[in-house]
Simulated scan of single mutants.
Amino acid sequence: MKQVVSLSIFIGIIIIALFGFINSPTALLLGFIFSLFFKSSFDKLIHNSIQILLKISIIGLGFGMYLKDTIETSSDGLGLTFFSILFTVGLGFLLTRLLKIDKNLGHLITSGTSICGGSAIAAISPVIRANSKTISVALGVVFTLNAIALFVFPLLGHLLNLNQHQFGLWCAIAIHDTSSVVGAALGYGDEALRIATTVKLSRTLWIVPLSVISMFIFKTKGERIKIPYFILLFIIAITINSYNFLPEIATQSIVTISKKLLIVTLFLVGSTISIKDLISTGYKPILLAFSLWVFIAIFSLIYITF
């Protein structure tokens, strides 16, 4: 009976996610709550689904990106993006070693913090062959910070008297997940939303070079290095969208579906998190993510205001 109830709740939450009634942090939280009260009897299927859906989602998101927007992004935005990623990734490698955190976990947290949260983790995790537990912890930590940022950043923006241009840049750089970037900028003003979205898209493109670098860093001895198919398809998706090879209604639908699939994936990821795993992970991954978040927020704010 309990198994029937748990399966019904599990499927019900997935349906709710597909209809867009919950956001990313909520999905992850619901998955975690589900894991507290119910023990899944299909863990292997969930883990396999996570890998597949993460790849599909990241490819689909490419249909919402434009090469032209990236090229036309202001030099200030491009410079800030480049240096913030460079310094954050460098600091992440250093802190991972100093804190003696698992190399895969440290790299996923660093990737998610420096580029674009769940999308970066989705792209990097298959490249470095991270297991579901590592992905779960990385996503859990990064998306917790995203949820906090969604509420905190607009308040800080007004407190610091940032104009819309400054706030849009700050959101795009210092907040990791696209949904949180858009959510934070939406209430600040149209200009902030436009700048945040444009710079965020250019920032997301850095998934590709970071994925290639990750393959070199984490490659198995004697193994031939190949660019994963989903990275190639991600680039192809951006190109298709940029040159209007598909009607706009089709690309918009693909992006919408991809975002919903990503939310479903986050619920699945949350359902694999356990209190035991979090306790065994310790405080260090949280300390790493929080330190990188504070660094990138302060660095980008100083860069923008001075």
Results as ranks from 00 to 15, higher is better:
L186K: 11
F42I: 14
S300P: 09
D43P: 03
A250I: 15
I124P: 06
T73Y: 11
I275E: 03
K100F: 05
G62W: 08
I13E: 05
R129K: 15
L45R: 10
K100V: 09
I46P: 02
L18Q: 12
D69A: 10
T265V: 04
D43C: 06
I302K: 01
L261I: 14
V212K: 06
R194Q: 15
N163W: 09
K200M: 07
G12K: 00
F42S: 13
L233F: 15
Y283E: 08
N131H: 14
I231V: 13
W293S: 15
L186V: 04
N241A: 15
I52T: 11
I175K: 07
I275M: 12
G282I: 14
A196D: 03
V208H: 04
I135L: 01
T251M: 01
A17F: 01
L145K: 04
W293E: 10
I58V: 15
K68P: 01
V127M: 03
M1G: 11
L261N: 00
K284H: 03
S8E: 04
N163L: 03
I298Y: 00
F306R: 11
H47T: 12
F290P: 02
I16N: 03
V137N: 04
I213N: 06
T73Q: 15
F267L: 01
I195S: 10
S74V: 08
P228A: 11
K39Y: 11
I275T: 09
L301S: 08
P209Q: 07
I231D: 05
P228R: 13
A27G: 15
Q51S: 13
S214D: 07
S125F: 02
S35G: 09
W206Y: 14
S180V: 05
G31P: 01
A250S: 11
F306D: 03
R194H: 14
S84W: 04
L193E: 07
L246G: 03
I173N: 06
S119G: 05
T73D: 09
P154A: 02
K68Q: 14
